[in-house]
Design a protein around this nucleic acid. Structure first.
Lengths: 341, 341
DNA sequence: ATTTCCAATGCAAACGATTGAATGATGTCA
DNA sequence: TGACATCATTCAATCGTTTGCATTGGAAAT
């Protein structure tokens, strides 16, 4: 059916092994033979069978990326697409292909990962986000399989990670409010089992504590990564008797919902409620008022993760086991109170 | 190293072929043997080697998705992530894995596709977007390789496609403006070599022609799919001596740029310029004013494309060769002129 | 007690590459 | 001229499955 290495060999009057060696640039193949074989490969439009190749070589030149379940919601959040963009760009540049998997339950997710890992389908994996007691990490460690976690793991200290200093980032944002005289500062968190949620919450608490401000549990609301949850958070938090004057939101998409919710309730941002988010999605600049946000270098996270993974896969030395991508707070109107002039 | 079918066979005291048959649910394997083998597979944590499997079966249970180049920009636009979400969901549900590829030049893209197709890496491909004279389509047809195009092809009438009726959709939007008394209607287009750009432009022209309004070339600006281009379009179009009073924008992300640009120039939407976009991204609802948009069912496009592709791959009958996903115009404030009350 | 038949399993040849060891054809040197 | 190193190439085994065809052993039929 398809043209194989044997066809090329026959046509060129050499053995399959020679063709294979030409293909892999083996040193002791004469220039003449190499040229002839290459010509014939070109003429016959030969493409090596990847499956056969990786069956024997045990290398797939493919990395996998495990999407957080439920896959259904994830792309709604720009974070994931931006990470993937970073990964796909770096991987492609390095000649690697990318596979995507998910599962809608934990069981399915583990099965999917097993298929990839044990089935020798990929050479390495990138995990987006760590949650408490993630069975996938355990699985990969047991199998001694190369992987990089985007985020931080509380349980495993000996794995490759690429992360932001989220504690510091949230601290910075909270300080920004405190510096402007705010003392009633709320927080809209992500799912509490995610490490990133914990870290940002910790940074927020640190800043408060440092300033001698007691944290108010009713000003800390739990959300997810959808706009909707920002709405909901507001209808709750703006109705507590003594409501906050500023709020730190764990994600810009959620912050958009917060902005919408607050506005709908008849409040003004930043006069009635100052607001800042994370991730600095392109949209943050275009709302009215534009939303302050921490740029965490999402693309960089993906790019670096892929780069690190490929090093690990190839057995090259990895300089740092835990890499930190720098963040940068970008103050916009939503968090800067301008007295009416 | 890894446990193989031979290990299982030895342990179970049967031949590898029997194990293989148990694995594939062959009818004439005794219940007793099947049970025993399955137990041992479980106990030894056996996972079949995917490469070996697909080397002989010539089936990979994987579909590929070719991202439009340059990959760098694409994820900025929600369209792509939403399509992929649809594809990954459907594919995963059907037990298929997903591969992503790109190339940054046409040559690279063709090479990447060749690697996947000729290297027997995937069973089918999904193409996002068609452009004039796309060499990838030609390549796939020549190889008789299953694929589905999201969009419409002008050159090839015999391929599987999933698309919207973009002519009709743009017609609807333009009519919406005309019905409100607008006669000076502009258009911000996408890259002119994309079929979707042509179709929407055609719908716009049709509506104008039907209403006896002459199209004004200087009111038709070319953009891409980035916010930036909306900005640029505005600084141009709002400075022509006789500027339009309404504008149809090919993409919501671009429309966001348009909104920003127009506002920055000191104009009001919709009073000075009425505005409507396409794709109905979540953000459109949250701008001020909210942006009218055509919901084209992006997720559905991806989901249906994947579904259709898998049918084709498995040789199942495909009811329709060209599938249309319905669209729906959602009128919001940006396109509805409210006289000051 | 043979022969026949069928269900259950085993044999061995693929699939398309890679790779260590063996071979053959040169050239070099005494 | 013969022995020997050297370089380029071939041989054959291997990777982990699948699958058409052969084999086996016992029940049913003669």
């Amino acid at each position: 059916m398809n043209v194989t290495i044997v066809d090329i060999a026959r046509k060129a009057g050499v053995s399959p092994s020679t063709v294979s060696r030409v293909l892999s640039g083996h040193p002791k193949i004469s220039a003449a033979t190499a040229r002839k074989v290459k010509e014939i490969m070109e003429a016959m439009d030969y493409h090596p069978n990847v499956m056969a190749k990786s069956l024997v070589s045990k290398v797939t030149r493919t990395i996998g990326i495990v999407l957080p379940r439920p896959a259904e919601e994830l792309f709604l959040n720009l974070f994931f697409s931006e990470v993937i963009r970073g990964v796909v760009t770096q991987a492609t540049r390095s000649g690697y292909d990318l596979m995507l998997t998910t599962g809608s339950t934990e069981r399915e997710e583990v099965d999917a990962v097993n298929r990839l890992v044990r089935g020798r389908r990929v050479d390495g994996l990138i995990l987006l986000y760590s949650r408490e007691g993630d069975p996938v990490i355990k699985l990969l460690k047991e199998n001694n399989f190369p992987f990089v976690l985007i985020g931080r793991s509380e349980e495993h200290s000996d794995i490759l990670t690429v992360d932001n200093n989220n504690v510091q980032a949230a601290y910075d944002v909270t300080r920004h409010f405190i510096a402007q005289g705010h003392t009633r500062i709320g927080f809209v968190s992500g799912p509490p089992d995610l490490t990133v949620s914990k870290d940002r919450l910790a940074g927020y608490r640190n800043a408060l504590a440092e300033a001698g401000i007691a944290a108010r549990p009713d000003w800390i609301v739990e959300g997810d990564f959808l706009q909707e949850s920002g709405y909901r958070a507001m209808s709750f938090i703006m109705n507590v008797p003594d409501r906050p004057s500023a709020i730190v939101v764990m994600d810009d998409v959620v912050a958009l919902g917060v902005l919408g919710g607050v506005t709908e309730l008849g409040f003004k941002v930043p006069q009635d409620l100052a607001l800042a988010g994370f991730n600095n999605i392109p949209m943050s600049e275009l709302t009215s008022p534009p939303i302050s946000s921490v740029d965490i270098g999402i693309y960089q996270l993906g790019y670096t993760a892929s780069q690190t993974l490929l090093r690990a896969v190839k057995g090259e030395p990895v300089h740092q086991q835990r890499m930190l991508i720098p963040h940068r707070f970008i103050a916009r109107e939503s968090s800067i109170f301008k007295p009416p002039s």
